[in-house]
Each structure stands twice: as structure tokens, then as C-alpha cells.
Design a binder for these strands. Structure first.
Lengths: 251, 251
DNA sequence: TGCCGCAGATTTATCATATAATTGTCGTTG
DNA sequence: CAACGACAATTATATGATAAATCTGCGGCA
């Protein structure tokens, strides 16, 4: 096994994420990323997790780097370490699924329709509630942000913006407009999940017809009509759910 | 400032959390806990965050321990570090609120009615949806778990169990019964929030009257009636919200 | 036989020190 | 005044040594 966490020969095609970019930043983050993916994809489900000195040898880095990477994975709930017992992978229920790194590892390496459906089941609870709160907490600035997202979607319709990124921008703006930090917390989660699920949604080209549905959400929030905002958002995400159900039935 | 992360003279009154118990486990976890609390309570909002060598001196530990604690806080979104620029506290929007440690630090040290209300706004979206899913995914084992939680609540009514812990057990069982890992993820969050909010809810003694409401949720899930399960859970949490609103009005 | 306890081995935890890499600052120079 | 280069501060990495925790198995003792 030849692990290249130094990234000497890696060509990083995606330049999407600006700041948190895991891999190439330094040895610790490179190891974090590689190990994280390995864990969520089940490489150590039957094999025991290596000792820190074995890991250091395997990845050709110092024990400092190894220990720091392991500590970060521990902080995210993926690992646990005890003297003499060694380091071991935690059961998946302990993983912090709302950590953007963990979710990205899961979706990038283990994408499944089932996971997408479960995630959409979450969105259909969160986003309508966020829209309802946004309608109550509405002010000039928040509405402007949502409006900007909608305008980008409209521009994307005409080919002047990216359809996926503008869609994400709209939903993020609604979450933030809820004025509730717990809802705002889902920003990263929704962004990560939508970005990686593009593989799936791209197969259905008729989906951009939802522009009018997005406008219904925007309008209701502007009017301060929380109930309408909620139901409009429910319908929007329910349509996504229908797509997934269809795909699952075919598969 | 005298930081006792070694816990030599600390008497740990709570023994509640069994495994993840932050403080006394070792120096790294002790420092993680102390630093985490300090950050969320705003100690470094105007003061710059110390360099790692300063931290090591201040806490009387080696740089290894310091770096590993800082790395864990970085993994939880509280810090960011760059060569020459030093380590600095991230804006609160980047904090991983659904990390049990972060939420605990926030609630233990910074408890506010406002935070509790925002959290309840989240629960009123999550838990009813989880109950609805649970009604669909119901099987013998899952129903038994919810039933066990309910039985504990009934026992607590008679003084034979802890009212808070049994209440938590019921809600956790519903989240798990949703058979959706994203909902199950809220286990720790709900547990942490309910445990720390006991200070508040304990002032209202009439609240245990909700036993019948919990039974309504249980019954609906047993019947596979997702709509009833959902509305029953909404009512249950809406009552909590009323308590909070009352308290906020008085304050 | 069966149990208790101790010695050894293994692995993480901690410490200490040295060197490299990154990048902001400031002065110099054209 | 701008661009470049030397310096300095801070994190990043490497290495080696020692401590602490705890599992395993051996041996003694009742």
C-alpha cells in the first residue's frame, strides 16, 4: 500500500472548497483525509486498526503527525484510543455525521441512493421549519440574501450561472434567515450533500422547473407568511423525494 | 491564572457520563475541556489567542499535549491555525454545534433561555418527523425500546426512577426508531441539552403531567399511524415551548 | 484444583529538543 | 514608490526518551 499524503504527485482537479480543503494543506490534514475515508468506507471493519507506530511507518510520517491526525478523528467520533488496548474504530452511531468532513467522506466514497434518501428525509423536516422561522424573522437583509439566491437560479435558467451552486445559495440563505444558529448549522451539511449528490440529480434534466416553487417560498417569506413558506418548502423537497423513490424503484 | 487540568485536587461530583467524560481522562482531554469552555464563553473574543508555547507554559504541559488539544478544537471548528499567523478562534458560525462537547460547553457555561428556545425550535422540527418515520419503520424491537422508555417515565411518576433520565430515554428511543442515522444523530444533542436544561425545567413541577402525551406518541407508533405520531409529538414539544415563552415574558 | 497477585510486555501518553516550512514585517534598493 | 530580499515569529515535522495504563501469563499459595 502506497499512501501519498504529501500530495507530491497529486493533481487536484476540484478546486471547489476554498478554505477547509482537507488534503493538500499539510501532512496532518492529508493523513486526516486519507484515514477518514478509509474508516468510513470500512477498511478496518474486520481488520484491527493499526498502532500509531505502524501508521507512522505506513504513511511515512512522524508520530507527531500521526497522533494529531488520530486525535482529530477522535474528536469527530470516528476513533477511540486507550493505552495498551490500542486505537480502534468507533461504531458508526458515534460518528459525528454533521461534521462536514465526515459527511463528505461518507458521500464521496460511499454514495448510495439510500443515504441520499435518508438525507432528504432530514431536509424535509429541517428546511420547511427554517422557512417558517425565516418568515417570522424576516428583515431587509435576510430577504435580500434569499432574493439574491433566487436571482442566481433565474440566471442559471438562462445559462448565466451555475444551476447547482445557485440552488445551494438559495437554500443556504433560507437556513441563515431562520435566525436560529441550530438551523444555520445545516449550511455545511446541505452544501456538502447537494454538491456530492450532483451525480444523481444531474441525470434528471427536467428538475430545473422548480423555479416557480422557489419563488413561492421567497414570496411567502417576504410576506411574513410562515405557514405558506413551510408548505411551499415541503412541496419543493417532496419533489426531490419523488425522484429518489422513482430511482429506487427502478434499481 | 492557575489551570488545574491534571485534576489532582478536583472532586468530580457528577459521574453521569460514563465514557466520553472529558475532564479527568488525561492531560489532553483536560486541556480540551478547559480551553473549549474558555473559547465558547468568549475569553478570547477581544484578547488574541495565545501561541502554542504560551499555552503550554500556562497549563504547565508539554507542547505535544497542547498541540493535540488544539488540533481537536480545530476539528470541532472552534480554532484555526496557520504558521506565523498563530492560532485564532473561529467565528461562532463555524463551530460544530452538534458536537456533544461543543454543545455541552455552550449550555453548561452560557446557559440562556434564548439558547434553550432556539434548541426547542429545532426539536419541534426534528422529533415529530422522527416519530412519523418511526411509525413507518416500526418493528418489535424498536417499539419495545420506546415502551421501555415510557415504562421508566411511569415508574418515575411513582418515584421509582429518575424523571429526567427516563424522559430522555423515551425521546432517544423515538429518534433511534426512525431508522435514519441522521435523526439518530440527535441522540447526543438531545441528551446533552435536556440534561443541562434541568435547571430550568425543574422550576416547573407540574410538567410531569405529560405522561399521557407520551403515551399518545407511543400508541400512534405502535399503530403505524405516522400522522398521529407526528402531531402528538408536536403537541408535546409545543408545551415545552409555551413554558419557555412564559419564562421569557416574565424575564 | 483454583485463585490471587506479581512481573513482563505492549501501547498510548507525555516530555524535551531540534529542525523545517510558512509567511508577515520591514528595510533596502532601483 | 514599488519590488525584492533578509529577518523573525509561529506552526509543522521529526526523533528519542520516559511514564502510565493495562492485558497476559506465570507462579505461588491455600
Amino acid at each position: 500500500m502506497n499512501h501519498d499524503i504529501r500530495g507530491d504527485g497529486i493533481l487536484d482537479g476540484t478546486g471547489a472548497r476554498s478554505e477547509p480543503a482537507g488534503a493538500g494543506r499539510n501532512l496532518t490534514y492529508g493523513m486526516l483525509d486519507t484515514l477518514g475515508k478509509a474508516i468510513v468506507t470500512g477498511r478496518y471493519d474486520d481488520a484491527p486498526f493499526p498502532t500509531e507506530s505502524d501508521l507512522a511507518k505506513e504513511y511515512a510520517v512522524s508520530r507527531s503527525v500521526t497522533r494529531e491526525a488520530v486525535k482529530m478523528l477522535t474528536a469527530k467520533g470516528l476513533l477511540t484510543a486507550r493505552p495498551r488496548k490500542g486505537t480502534s474504530v468507533q461504531p458508526a452511531v458515534n460518528w459525528n455525521l454533521f461534521d462536514p468532513d465526515v459527511l463528505r467522506w461518507l458521500l464521496e466514497r460511499k454514495f448510495s441512493l439510500d443515504l441520499l434518501r435518508q438525507f432528504t428525509e432530514l431536509r424535509i423536516a429541517i428546511e420547511p421549519a427554517a422557512a417558517a422561522l425565516a418568515a417570522r424573522a424576516a428583515n431587509q437583509e435576510r430577504i435580500a440574501a434569499i432574493h439574491a439566491g433566487f436571482d442566481r437560479m433565474a440566471a442559471a435558467e438562462a445559462g448565466d450561472d451555475d444551476p447547482l451552486e445557485s440552488d445551494i445559495a438559495f437554500h443556504i440563505a433560507v437556513l441563515r434567515a431562520s435566525a436560529n444558529p441550530f438551523y444555520a448549522q445545516f449550511q455545511d451539511v446541505v452544501t456538502t450533500a447537494l454538491r456530492t449528490s450532483i451525480r444523481f440529480t444531474n441525470r434528471f434534466k427536467g428538475r430545473t422547473a422548480s423555479l416557480s416553487q422557489h419563488y413561492a417560498v421567497l414570496g411567502a417569506i417576504e410576506d411574513g407568511d410562515s405557514q405558506t413558506a413551510k408548505t411551499a418548502m415541503v412541496e419543493l423537497i417532496a419533489d426531490v423525494m419523488v425522484l429518489i423513490d422513482d430511482a429506487e424503484r427502478k434499481a
